[in-house]
Nucleic acid binder design. Structure first.
Length: 429
RNA sequence: GGAGGGGUGCCUGAGCGGUUGAAAGGGAUGGUUUCGAAAACCAUUGUGGUUUAUAUCACCGUGAGUUCGAAUCUCACCCCCUCCGCCA
């Protein structure tokens, strides 16, 4: 959520920001409601003040007389009753305006920072750098699914039988590869001062709302929801980690507070019918290791770069070719102010595919979650929140299989994972 | 699933329907003392809204209600805890 004061003072900036982000909101309507709201609040406060005056006067009369002066008392009580009616009416009026106001406020996205490239969709993202060597095959390389089926690593047929489309079984070395990636990432990242955590994957609807991920109908369609329990399945651990500190106040010395979470993620993939239907690139359920940081605003840009840097380090150690992309305004998530993606080289597709994403949500989430910190002078401010992928495991396994495939149909295990997995090569049984 | 208990400020914890925005203790901050520290002592210390300002309003889990007046009474909901049962 944005600060209404900011919107009030910078309406044009907000309108432009919404446009850059490809989000339609009636900012003028917000401003009008804001005006009405404030007027009403003033009137209400006056009435309430009057009510307080009446009741304290009543109290004074009651307490200063042994025998109560009936007339004066009745007069006061009558006045109070009248005034109360007016208060009630104004309250109803205010409530109506508040509801519309809040509904609109929630639709205002976080604004892109000044250095975010402007564009409408992913085609306008800016490639910052390419790293690693793309493999050159002296043989006809196969796609990961073919290899995985040959080596009995992924079973989507049976998954379809059991669960439907967009599910998969990771088997044999693929299952072990997942565990190895988890261990590798946790060992590596915990050293940087992250708290390891395995969070709940079901969260209350109000929590999901506060994180800013169900602002639109489209968002809602993307989430799994259990109506009778009022619970959502998370699409990423971020949705579970962010609200951990809801309504809490950090001491500045405790920042940044960093978490490393492993969780299963659930996505409806409602808008992607017919896209990536094959295999496990785009599935309803996958496991992911996610980094999250609560930090003070002055260092959030640096913290964000630090996250990107960690992601790149992991990729370099796995020796996978990738490129870093700065997302354009139209391709950023709703709560995001600036975002980088890492895309990993997928030889069979002859292109890079998104495997990581890291965002600085500035104070947008913190404002709604009411997460603040006390600075040196004792003042309370909202923290900034940063999130970033360590590994989206399914996609990382895809990348490993494809980039590490050998002529004889086997797959080499990346060096850094070998000590976790206990073997160097995945070959036919 | 059955039976009870409870949600108050940064934390612990009081709170007959009327100076209770809230006792007390702890913590934190500042000061005195000290070569320095600890201890001791003194002082300060909730948040948010409206307003140019003075000022004013709201907030004791959430929402509604009773009342001139609610942290305190009523109802609904949410959450937590204890015991029993069941269970990975």
């Amino acid at each position: 959520m944005l600060d209404i004061r900011f919107i009030r003072e910078n309406p044009e900036k907000v309108k432009q920001g919404c446009q850059k982000k490809q989000v339609k909101v009636d900012v003028d309507r917000i401003l009008l409601l804001d005006k009405k709201r404030r007027n009403l609040i003033q009137e209400l406060d006056k009435l309430r003040s009057e009510q307080n005056r009446i009741s304290s006067e009543t109290k004074a009369v009651v307490q200063s007389h042994e025998v109560l002066p009936k007339d004066r008392l009745e007069e006061l009580e009558g006045e109070g009753r009248e005034n109360k009616k007016e208060i009630k009416n104004k309250e109803i009026e205010l409530k109506k305006i508040d509801e519309e106001f809040n509904a609109l406020m929630v639709q205002v996205p976080n604004l892109p920072l000044d250095d975010v490239p402007i564009g409408k969709d992913e085609s306008e993202n800016k490639v910052l750098r390419e790293k690693g060597k793309k493999p050159k095959f002296s043989f006809k390389n196969k796609d990961y699914l073919e290899i995985a089926q040959d080596l009995d690593l992924i079973d989507v047929k049976r998954a379809a039988k059991v669960s439907g489309t967009r599910f998969g079984y990771l088997k044999n070395e693929a299952a072990l590869l997942e565990l190895a990636l988890i261990n590798f990432a946790f060992n590596k990242i915990i050293k940087q001062g992250f708290i390891p955590v395995i969070p709940p994957v079901m969260i209350k609807s109000e929590t999901m709302e506060a994180m800013g991920y169900i602002a639109t109908k489209k968002d809602l369609a993307e989430r799994y929801f259990f109506e009778k329990d009022n619970l959502f399945l998370v699409g990423t651990a971020e949705q579970s980690i962010g609200p951990m500190h809801k309504d809490e106040i950090f001491e500045e010395k405790d920042l940044p507070k960093r978490y490393l979470a492993f969780s299963t993620c659930f996505r409806e993939e409602a808008g992607s019918y017919g896209k990536d239907t094959k295999g496990i690139l785009r599935v309803h359920q996958f496991d992911k290791i996610e980094m999250f940081s609560f930090c003070n605003p002055e260092i959030s840009r640096k913290e964000h770069e630090f996250f990107l840097n960690l992601e790149e380090k992991l990729m370099k150690e796995l020796n996978l070719p990738y490129q870093v992309v700065k997302n354009c305004s139209g391709d950023m998530a709703f709560p995001t102010a600036i975002q980088y993606d890492i895309e990993t080289w997928i030889p069979s597709e002859d292109r890079y595919r998104e495997t990581h994403s890291t965002s600085n949500c500035t104070d947008f989430q913190a404002r709604r979650l009411n997460i603040r910190y006390r600075d040196k002078s004792g003042k309370l401010n909202f923290v900034h929140t940063i999130n970033g992928t360590a590994f989206a495991i399914g996609r990382t396994i895809i990348a490993i299989i494809e980039n590490y495939q050998q002529k004889d149909g086997s797959v080499l295990v990346p060096k850094v994972l070998q000590k976790y997995i206990g073997f160097k090569i995945i070959s036919k049984k």
